[in-house]
Write a protein that binds this DNA or RNA. Structure first.
Lengths: 138, 138
DNA sequence: TCTTGACTTAGACAAAGTCTAATGTAGGAT
DNA sequence: ATCCTACATTAGACTTTGTCTAAGTCAAGA
């Protein structure tokens, strides 16, 4: 994700300290922070950053396709920087931990055309649920 | 879902006008209302019903397994009375319409054990996304 | 019919996110 | 190098969605 800032600049982004810090917080694999967590971590480096800017920047990253929004439950959305690798999520029903997983096969193919009701189906999101090793041990 | 009230009474539910009205609103296929919509429709028949009661009743129906909670996006949860038939959802990316669909095959089998990270995987939720006929026509 | 514990209510509260008007600034123009 | 201005940021009010509490109400069994 280190070339993210370059890609964004190429698309006309004005490069500000705030945007740089938000992008840096999201850098790394298997990171799925809420907007509030991103704000807290960004504020460690740039204390005056506002919540609105974090929300704006996350929204921009999502609409540019650089980051995925994940709504695992009815709670806060989480942001997944691993947008360039197709993957799905495995969520612990007890503690909410998320792992990226890579199922086999063409997931879209599982939906017969008789079940598509005239929709132009373009994407599929899969969430596996279960207990993580820590929670099932308890 | 017409025998729902009987099932609930059998499980010790006290049968009140409020609960009856909420259950009636949810009755019907392919209905996916938000809590607020359920409240509005319930209030047409029982004007003094409170939001808290609607939330309580929906929560009870969910924990009894009679209704499913669906978080299609980061917005309000929707309630799906079709809980007794395994199904997944097809959501219009533009207008948010939801259809119930029934994919083929064993969806859980798509996740190899090497990708389970020690989780006891017990459920899978699939959301297909695309444009509905109305929105793709525009 | 009486009683009681379960149910409902209004409204305060909380969490997550959006919006606005005022202010600041990145980066091209000069 | 500096200036300019459209784009970006800020604080905080506001909205939406959902939860909680204390007081009042009622379904259903005794």
């Amino acid at each position: 994700m280190s070339d993210l800032l370059e890609r964004l600049r190429g698309r006309g982004w004005r490069l500000t300290a705030q945007r740089r810090v938000v992008a840096e917080v999201l850098d790394g694999d298997h990171v799925h922070y809420t907007a509030d967590e991103v704000h807290a971590k960004a504020a460690e480096r740039l204390p005056e950053i506002s919540r609105a800017t974090v929300y704006n920047t996350l929204g921009e990253l999502v609409s540019l396709g650089e980051v995925l929004e994940v709504s695992t439950d009815g709670r806060a959305k989480r942001y997944d920087p691993n947008a360039h690798h197709a993957h799905q999520h495995l969520v612990c029903s007890r503690c909410g931990t998320i792992r990226d997983v890579h199922p086999e096969g063409d997931l879209l193919a599982g939906l017969p055309s008789a079940e598509r009701f005239g929709f132009q189906v373009s994407a599929v999101e899969v969430t596996y649920r279960g207990l993580c090793p820590d929670c099932s041990a308890g």
